[in-house]
Simulated scan of single mutants.
Amino acid sequence: MGRSPAPWDGEFSQYFARNARALRTTAYLLCHDWHRAEDIAQAALLKLYVAWPRLSRHDALDAYARRVVVRTFLADNRRALHRREHLTDTPPEPPSATGDPDQRVVLAEALSAVPPRQRAVLVLRYYNDLSVEETAHVLRCSTGTVKSQAARGLATLRQRLEVTCATTTSASSSTRSTTDRR
């Protein structure tokens, strides 16, 4: 005998169908690993499901769900022994078809060099397009903290991108000069 479904199962299922992919993408931008992003999104959705009957403002679910994803990522990052290997027969989810794939890879690598808390601010502010106030609410910090973390995160990102671009430029220059000598 199985348990009977909760009265809110249908409502939650609809929310899940509409938002699971966006939450997984947000998690991916935070951790740069599709398998870990899937774990983070599933954990966040499980927490959301458990809290569902207590949530009085269903109009604010997206903000609440993003907050749970970010907090799950940050909590997961604080665990010292998190590094696990995940073996699977299925390939990772393909990236979207928009933009230059090489630029996305360079940006993802540079973003991974940004500390986790700053990365969370950058993803919420510039990918999820949240205001400073909304980001502060999600992270439960002051707007000043969001601004300083964003400034530091952007500085780290710029520095990393400058190094990557300089390396790429010098590598392509040396390749061209080697080709020209032939």
Score class of each variant (00 low, 15 high):
113 A>G: 07
140 R>N: 13
144 G>L: 09
145 T>E: 15
131 S>V: 04
118 Q>E: 14
119 R>H: 01
146 V>S: 00
127 Y>R: 12
114 V>G: 07
138 V>M: 13
135 T>D: 01
145 T>K: 05
147 K>L: 15
133 E>Q: 15
128 N>Y: 02
116 P>W: 04
139 L>F: 11
120 A>T: 01
140 R>D: 15
114 V>E: 00
116 P>K: 03
120 A>E: 05
130 L>G: 03
134 E>L: 08
125 R>I: 03
129 D>L: 13
131 S>N: 08
140 R>H: 14
126 Y>I: 02
148 S>G: 00
122 L>K: 00
149 Q>I: 00
128 N>T: 06
117 R>P: 01
132 V>Q: 02
127 Y>M: 05
143 T>Y: 03
129 D>W: 12
125 R>T: 03
138 V>W: 06
145 T>D: 14
144 G>W: 08
116 P>T: 03
128 N>L: 13
129 D>C: 12
122 L>C: 01
142 S>I: 08
118 Q>V: 04
131 S>G: 10
152 R>C: 09
135 T>W: 05
144 G>R: 14
121 V>W: 00
151 A>K: 14
121 V>M: 01
148 S>C: 05
147 K>F: 08
137 H>E: 15
143 T>S: 15
125 R>V: 08
124 L>E: 02
137 H>M: 12
140 R>G: 09
145 T>H: 12
150 A>W: 06
136 A>M: 08
118 Q>R: 06
136 A>G: 11
128 N>P: 01
122 L>N: 06
148 S>I: 13
135 T>M: 08
128 N>W: 03
136 A>D: 10
127 Y>P: 02
152 R>G: 13
148 S>V: 13
125 R>F: 05
114 V>K: 02
113 A>F: 02
113 A>I: 08
144 G>F: 05
142 S>C: 06
128 N>H: 11
150 A>V: 09
134 E>F: 04
133 E>Y: 06
115 P>C: 03
138 V>H: 13
134 E>T: 02
132 V>Y: 13
129 D>K: 11
131 S>Q: 04
135 T>F: 00
119 R>P: 03
150 A>P: 04
146 V>L: 06
115 P>Y: 06
151 A>C: 02
125 R>H: 06
134 E>Q: 14
149 Q>F: 13
140 R>S: 13
122 L>M: 05
146 V>C: 07
125 R>M: 11
123 V>I: 09
127 Y>A: 12
149 Q>T: 05
130 L>F: 10
144 G>K: 09
115 P>S: 07
143 T>I: 05
115 P>K: 04
138 V>A: 14
122 L>V: 00
141 C>W: 09
152 R>I: 00
152 R>A: 13
135 T>V: 09
119 R>G: 08
118 Q>C: 07
136 A>K: 02
134 E>R: 01
151 A>V: 00
138 V>C: 15
149 Q>R: 14
140 R>F: 11
121 V>P: 02
142 S>V: 08
138 V>I: 13
125 R>W: 07
123 V>R: 04
136 A>N: 06
151 A>N: 12
113 A>N: 04
146 V>E: 06
127 Y>L: 04
129 D>V: 11
136 A>V: 06
139 L>V: 09
123 V>H: 01
124 L>S: 02
150 A>Y: 09
122 L>G: 03
119 R>L: 08
127 Y>F: 15
136 A>Y: 08
114 V>I: 03
151 A>E: 15
120 A>F: 00
129 D>Y: 12
113 A>Q: 09
